[in-house]
């Protein structure tokens, strides 16, 4: 029935073989129709606008709600036919799900132009205006352009039949591949790793500044953090373990053996950290559920 996006051979009304003239015609038709709708929307009277946005949001969300509550087909394997109309809807929902799940990314991807536009607007303005920051803005624009050129060029080369794995070997590289490798592996990725590792410094300064025995809460935080850190330092852990062992008199089954740093830290994690996180998570989950309900029914903005 509703096989809009089902990979089916031979073509239905919704698809056509690649390189077929029909497909091109259909696509152009769809584009024209789509832009037609867009122009119609431009003329939409103001009082209908909210309704249109509500409708679009509701329908999009409704797909997943239906997928959730509609009984999904039992014991289905490839090539099965639905038993009845009810089952058919279940089949269709299940088949459409992988397609629908890509929509968000596709539409989000189309909007990237707006992001680039924002960047360019700010930095081109700065370049034109001159001043101290102009050279930096120029660097930004230049490195972006270089990355786009070599990124796509390198990708294009790798797309050629059989070229991909060949280009994994540095001996077969040309200038383009070197340039892309330099920009991506040599610069971008290394800068990401550098920025990631910079956090260590900030952790040190934050701990120094904030971990003071000021209030009960701060003391609890500090003490737990210290226990966990010490349990991960094997020198301390080892010595402590020896001490615990001597208190226990070498008896492996003594209750005292539970007080090695590893066991204490493990116990804190399992019986306090995990449930307390789960406690926050319950709240956050309900919050997200409520927010989603409001978004789906367009109640969110109405509140303002």
């Amino acid at each position: 029935m509703l096989n809009l996006f089902l990979d089916i051979d031979p073509p239905t009304i919704f698809n056509a073989h690649n390189n077929f003239q029909t497909l091109t015609t259909y696509i152009i038709g769809a584009l024209l129709a789509g832009f037609g709708i867009l122009f119609a929307l431009l003329k939409a009277p103001p009082q209908t606008r909210r309704g249109i946005v509500f409708f679009v949001t509701f329908i999009s969300g409704f797909f997943y709600v239906l997928l959730f509550i509609w009984p999904s087909p039992i014991n289905r394997s490839k090539g099965d036919a639905p038993i009845n109309g009810f089952d058919n809807v279940g089949f269709w929902l299940a088949d459409a799900q992988p397609v629908v799940s890509t929509m968000t990314q596709i539409i989000g991807g189309f909007l990237i132009g707006l992001g680039i536009f924002s960047l360019m607007r700010i930095h081109l303005k700065r370049i034109v205006k001159g001043g101290g920051d102009a050279p930096f803005s120029f660097t930004l624009v230049l490195s972006m352009i270089l990355m786009i050129i070599f990124g796509f060029w390198d990708f294009h080369q790798r797309q050629q039949p059989g070229a991909g794995p060949l280009l994994d070997n540095q001996a077969n590289w040309g200038f383009v591949n070197y340039a892309k490798d330099y920009l991506f592996d040599g610069m971008l990725q290394e800068m990401e790793a550098a920025m990631f590792s910079i956090i260590a410094f900030y952790i040190l300064s934050a701990a120094y500044r904030a971990f003071r025995v000021r209030s009960i809460e701060a003391t609890i935080l500090l003490t737990t953090a210290l226990i966990v850190i010490l349990s991960l330092m094997s020198v301390v852990e080892y010595q402590w373990g020896e001490m615990v062992n001597s208190v226990a008199g070498g008896n492996k089954n003594s209750f005292v053996q539970n007080f090695t740093l590893t066991n204490v830290a493990g116990w804190i994690r399992a019986s306090v950290q995990q449930p307390s996180i789960r406690g926050i998570d319950f709240g956050v989950g309900i919050g997200l559920l409520a927010m989603s309900l409001r978004i789906w029914l367009s109640l969110e903005r109405a509140g303002e």
């Binding site: 990979d7 031979p10 490839k78 099965d80 036919a81």
Partner: peptide
């Protein structure tokens, strides 16, 4: 739950 098979020309391509 037993299901009939679709005719081969309507089976979706993996």
């Amino acid at each position: 739950v037993k299901r009939e098979k679709l005719p081969p020309d309507q089976i979706s391509i993996p």
